[in-house]
Design a protein around this nucleic acid. Structure first.
Length: 506
RNA sequence: GUCCCUGUCGUCUAACGGUUAGGACGCGAGAUUUUCAUUCUCGAAAUCCGGGUUCGAUUCCCGGUGGGGGUACCA
């Protein structure tokens, strides 16, 4: 019987969600949807020392912004809760107990200092079958002494007892079968008495089992510990229902070596976080895709193609299409350098696809921040529509279309030099007269009349039109001149020409 | 050090023994244009190296080498 597909995204609330984590969440979501399955969001807060306030909310907000919908989680609820590991202590304690009783785990009292000393003394020290007999644990101390120490309040950890010399096989849906010898695995700490919490390995296996997770899709950094996880499933007697594994390649730095880090973003000017993040401790602010003017659809599309391909030449794909085309078989095996310029291109493409009224809505807050108010939605939408072809980010709409909302303060020096000569003021005065005589400022009509006047007078078309543009826009850039003057009130256009005549000195 | 994963244009990738090695981003050139862009057309650009297996290897095997990850009472 095919089992119901259930996947989970299980971040730690230790800071803002990294873009690599976002991609993992996205792949899980797309995979779940493509199989009619469930998407679980589990908060793995088993490291009490690294907890960062606000991180959990940040995770929720980020996924929501990107359109990654959670079926079960802390906010959404569900039949397999609680979905926060710090609220599942009883469950873990019980499972640790079971392992201890079955002789598959043991209690160890070695302090971190003692372990450091052991590592320093022996080159490749590993807490395993070869060394556990020399350490301070329930195996060497005996039952009574162990109990005495615990009763005396001594802190301890529970370690998984790994049998050496076994070939452990992990079937990875992306990489195929991976085999490793259990001798290279150490007796991993599963539980620490100090904070009464399990470590990732134990909590992860117990929760995935109890939550009936069918597929574990996670980053490649987990591949080396996958055999350990297989052994844990075995120790619990859950091998039959063990989930399938898929380890995704990592996101790498655009330049240089290593995996993508926050520093790369700062250096090259792109965000590595979905949303802007204000670090509660340092007060440091990290840029986010949303605040930098990216559309969530573009980020999703871009991220989806970093490590996966649809099997054909499709590039532009919305979430629905991604879901329809997704397959783990088409995931790459090697790390992907983060090509942020392609991300910019995707955003440009999505900006073109976005209705102008929506662009206007996105532009409004930016205008307000500059004190530019009082424009109708229709005006803003038409302005945005005219300049979107030259915009990559939402902010570019403002940068490129600024003149629609405010008269130029300055005139581009280079363009003035080229297009504004001694008799330009006289010609511009004439132009004002021509414009005043036009009743219908519709683009085609105004163009016909103005161009007719230029021809009749024998003026140089390029010079007159560019001087006109300079006066209205402030530089030789922007959409078709008569499209601008169709949208802008005629009085404003004329006022700007007067202003330019006054302000520009040759 | 050691273990695991991995290697096609600068980048993301397609080609799962036989292709002029394809697409996209970026880059260059040209066309269009009253400006800046957009757009369109064209172009340069890759199978890590060495051995095998095979009639034939980007593709399969081995070795090297490059890259990534793990090696915590972090996830």
């Amino acid at each position: 019987m095919e089992r119901k597909v259930r996947v989970r995204f299980a971040p730690s609330p230790t800071g803002p969600l990294h873009i690599g984590g976002v991609r993992t969440a996205l792949y899980n979501y797309i995979f779940a949807r493509s199989h009619g399955g469930d998407m679980i969001l589990r908060i793995e807060d088993t490291d009490s020392r690294r907890f960062v306030p606000g991180a959990e909310e940040y995770i929720n907000d980020s996924l929501a912004w990107l359109g990654i919908k959670i079926d079960e989680g802390v906010r959404e609820g569900g039949a397999f809760g609680p979905y926060k590991q710090s609220e599942r202590r009883d469950i873990y304690r019980e499972h640790v107990r079971a392992l201890l009783d079955a002789g598959k785990a043991y209690i160890a009292f070695d302090t971190p200092e003692e372990l450091d000393a052991a590592r320093a003394a022996t080159p490749n020290f590993q807490y395993d079958a070869t060394t556990r007999g020399n350490m301070t644990n329930s195996l060497t101390l005996g039952k009574e002494e162990t109990e005495r120490r615990i009763a005396a309040g001594e802190q301890y950890v529970v370690r998984f007892l790994i049998e050496p010399g076994r070939e452990v096989k992990v079937n990875d849906l992306i990489r195929g079968e991976v085999t490793i010898n259990s001798s290279i695995l150490d007796d991993k700490v599963l539980y620490k008495s100090a904070d009464d919490l399990p470590t990732y390995h134990l909590a992860n296996i117990v929760d995935d089992h109890l939550m009936e997770v069918s597929h574990v899709i996670r980053g490649e950094e987990w591949l080396p510990s996958a055999p350990l996880h297989v052994l844990l499933y075995e120790a619990f007697g859950w091998s039959d229902t063990m989930p399938e594994f898929a380890h995704l390649p990592l996101l790498l730095k655009p330049v240089g070596n290593g995996k993508l880090s926050k520093r790369d973003g700062d250096k090259l000017g792109f965000p590595v976080f979905p949303l802007e993040w204000h670090d509660p401790a340092s007060g440091e602010v990290s840029a986010g895709y949303r605040e930098n003017g990216y559309l969530p659809e573009a980020v999703v599309n871009f991220l989806a193609l970093l490590g996966w391909n649809p099997g054909d030449d499709s590039e532009m794909m919305d979430m629905e299409t991604l879901i329809a085309k997704f397959s783990l078989a088409h995931c790459s095996r090697s790390g992907a350098k983060f090509d942020y310029k392609k991300g910019l291109w995707f955003n440009h493409e999505y900006l073109q696809l976005t209705p102008d009224t929506q662009l206007a809505a996105l532009l409004r807050p930016l205008l307000e921040a500059k004190g530019l108010t009082g424009f109708t939605e229709e005006y803003t939408a038409r302005a945005a529509g005219m300049v979107k072809g030259r915009a990559n980010l939402i902010g570019d709409l403002l940068e490129q279309g600024d003149f629609f909302f405010a008269a130029p303060e300055t005139y581009a020096e280079k363009d003035v030099r080229k297009r504004w000569s001694e008799d330009t003021p006289r010609i511009m005065e004439e132009l004002i007269g021509v414009l005043e005589g036009i009743d219908d400022m519709t683009s085609a009509n105004a163009e016909k009349i103005v161009l007719g006047w230029i021809e009749e007078k024998g003026y140089h078309l390029g010079n007159v039109m560019n001087a006109f543009r300079l006066a209205v826009v402030g530089a030789c850039r922007g959409p078709h001149m008569f499209d601008i003057t169709e949208l802008m009130p005629k009085e404003e256009v004329i006022a700007r020409i007067r202003r330019a005549i006054e302000k520009i000195n040759v």
